[in-house]
Amino acid sequence: MALSSHTTSTGFLLPSIHSAPPFFTKQPNPITNSTATEQWIRLISEYARFKRLFYLRIDDCEATGNDWDEILRNERINRRLLPTYLSYIIETMIEKGLAEYEPPKQTRSVILYWRAPEEWAEALHGWVVSTGRLNTIMTFYEITEPEIESPLSGIPLPLLRKCISILAKTNRSQIIAIPDGEGARFFARSTLQ
């Protein structure tokens, strides 16, 4: 049988391995397994980046009608990623620092780091500087839903908090309590406040 790559209706190019039926089963041979899992991780990360998806849940492979349908199942060969395998893939992603359980203390939902939190933090700081918002207090909402779309548009709050705390380590940010929730203030590099 010929295995070929496939472009989904949303324009994402699926690799040829995605049309191999055994790809959707966790492999018992450790070497084979690590190859397959590696492929899954790459596929998930690339797809998340492509569609700007931040969350992956075990439920996503159990039911249809979510953002992950194109990846977690292949209707053309009638296969879907099994939940046990997905949770193994997620564990491996966490080990590699590519994901984190969110909310914590459960294992059915993760936030994906297709960009490392440190990179997100730098992007956030870069955006603040380039839009002239240094030293201004901003609400979280202003950051995640700016009027003019930014690289940070739509990032989930846990990730935003993480970014702010990363920047705080180098004294470039500060979380501030404001009347309707939380806000943050950013400073130029190496300014001690």
């Binding site: 295995l3 191999a20 039926p21 055994p22 959707f24 089963t25 397959a36």
Partner: peptide, 20 residues
């Protein structure tokens, strides 16, 4: 590689070196 979702037998083996 093993496929545990084989329609007919439940468990099928796939040999990548014989696939295209």
């Amino acid at each position: 590689w093993v496929d545990e979702q084989d329609e007919t037998y439940g468990r099928a083996y796939w040999i990548p070196s014989t696939m295209e």
